[in-house]
Design a protein around this nucleic acid. Structure first.
Lengths: 346, 346
DNA sequence: TTGTACGCGTTATCAG
DNA sequence: CTGATAACGCGTACAA
């Protein structure tokens, strides 16, 4: 900046103002400055600017991992919206280690980040962050839920009120959520609409999103007069365990069956189990997933699923955290994508 | 920092030194400072530090996207190694738009980033970056290669020398590469070892990695006395086009056939085409992929493939760019992962 | 062993 | 319309 000022015989203050198109600066000098800055390849020092203004145009982003297709897509949405608005995201993958979560926070605080987005966080980070005075938005908050509540819902007993798309809005935290309940319903009504009468749900881990999808399954079936229907629980959230649960079920079931899986990976596990057990998809077993991960289009057969608007989830979180959007809670609908894994019962 | 100094009645300089465990500071004050800093939740200002020292502990990372499973895994490797070394990666996804590539560079320069890692870059970025004086490491540089060269290799004519794991090392650029040639050979020898005699290769786009995999295929077959064998070319690098190429081939071929696919996604396309054409895998058609994307374990049947050490690729790039490793070119071997998509000819 | 003083590159305030 | 000047928070040369 000094260089530019010197070359033109003006002060650095003038250059600074000219570069920001300050109308108080004459058009002539503004152009001259722009021209020289261009020639000298002037690059403003982000560090100096931050030090002076205390505003960083940095958005901290914490997530578990980025290696999986789902979060990757969300992250892409964050990145591209942030760039549009002139912000730079600072990503931090915690790989599930809680010690790294607080380290992430330390880093962000050192960088004077004032906006934080977390993707499917463990509960503590957002709370700590608001305590530090950050603006925070949470994408698909996924807090734990007791196994008792699950069996309550699965068995058809009364459900406590207030089971909504996300926990009660916490003060100072914006929530961007996928409509899990609606997705569960949508997947199920697709199947009832096809004429199925025998169902099964492969449920997910003990978290809220999973509970809501189960509830959607139950509601849709109840409305069709088909409730109750079985619910499968994998002992662990790994593919083998899911496959085993499905295999065991198919072993004592009669085709045709219609399955609503917790998510696409669960659905893939079900596809495997069906294949091994000699059940044909979709002839003997219809399967619907939820998420629409990139791979869903390439399973064999292609997976019918309820797509999450992953890109928008990310983009809206950016808007939320920058206060472009006042809503405390934003819920996005899923969209049914019909492929080859579902068909009517023959 | 002023606060801490005030509370202890010392100068900020002392605090600064104490925090770095400067041995010139008495142990007593060092501990006192540490204690107060802790209590006051002191966070050093990254901006101020950078402004003063001109070293940023920031590593710029440019990649196409992060939504796909492959790059995601590499990125994770970068992130975790960088953190170990006290560096903070600054990610920038270009989504394939070249205008964003230079924007990424602008951002990095403004942030005073001095180390840059690019993942499968378009050729221009690394060059520009070295011109700006950055240290740069390139992961799986993938420069374009003419279609003519491909047909030359496919048809078995003489191959120009110097077809190595990556282009001739450019000055100032470190290369971290996967051994594509070796992967092509490994995939092929797995198949010859199984006793196959009829082969086909589904080749990739016109880039070096793709050419090398093809060459590996050819070499392995030549050594087994089985060359020449057919090579399939998809008109476009999309799933449909790959499927079509395979379908057309299967239509005029006799089982059993052994296929080496350019990568796992191509292999998945082949699996689809086979399924549609009524070919059974692995009975009629054996398929080997390359990459070992997360999904490869979950195709139907599970895909045999040559795994890329994605995490290490990222980690080594960090080492390279920080000069922890002097080698100009580092080549990493693939590892055969046998699943259910390959079997001997019956 | 510690304190003083300066400067890193910006921007904001105030004066001209 | 423009210039001088101070200050942001830190690290370090120099002095004590």
């Amino acid at each position: 900046m000094k260089d530019v000022a010197a070359q033109l015989g003006v002060s650095t203050a003038t250059v600074s103002r000219a570069l920001k198109d300050d109308p108080a600066i004459s058009l002539a000098t503004r152009q001259a400055v722009a021209e020289v800055a261009q020639r000298v390849q002037y690059r403003p020092s982000a560090a100096a600017r931050r030090l002076r203004t205390k505003s960083t145009s940095l958005i901290g982003v914490v997530m578990q991992s980025v290696g999986d297709g789902y979060i990757g897509a969300v992250v892409l949405g964050i990145q591209s919206r942030a760039r549009e608005l002139g912000y730079q995201p600072l990503f931090f993958a915690t790989e599930g280690r809680t010690d790294l979560e607080s380290q992430a926070l330390d880093v962000f605080l050192s960088e004077q980040v004032t906006e934080l987005i977390t993707v499917s966080p463990s509960a503590s980070v957002p709370r700590q962050a608001v305590a530090e005075g950050l603006h925070v938005a949470v994408i698909n908050s996924d807090e734990a839920v007791s196994a008792r509540l699950f069996s309550r819902v699965a068995s058809g007993r009364a459900v406590p009120d207030g089971l909504d798309a996300c926990r009660d809005a916490e003060p100072m935290i914006k929530h961007i959520a996928f409509d899990d309940l609606g997705a569960g319903r949508l997947a199920t009504t697709h199947l009832t609409g096809l004429g199925h009468r025998s169902f099964v749900h492969l449920r997910g881990p003990n978290v809220r999103s999973s509970l809501l999808r189960l509830l959607g399954y139950r509601q849709a079936l109840a409305e069709a007069g088909l409730w109750p229907q079985p619910v499968l629980t994998a002992t662990e959230p790994v593919m083998q365990s899911r496959e085993a649960a499905v295999a065991e079920f198919l072993n004592r079931a009669q085709p045709p069956i219609a399955m609503v899986a917790y998510d696409d990976m669960s659905a893939v596990a079900a596809l495997h189990a069906a294949h091994r057990a000699g059940w044909r998809v979709p002839d003997d077993l219809s399967v619907v997933g939820i998420d629409d991960i990139q791979f869903a289009a390439y399973t064999n057969p292609g997976l019918t699923t309820v797509a999450q608007p992953k890109h928008r989830l990310g983009a809206l979180a950016v808007d939320a955290v920058l206060e472009k959007n006042a809503a405390e809670v934003t819920v996005l609908d899923g969209e049914l994508v019909v492929r080859e894994s579902t068909a009517g019962p023959s």
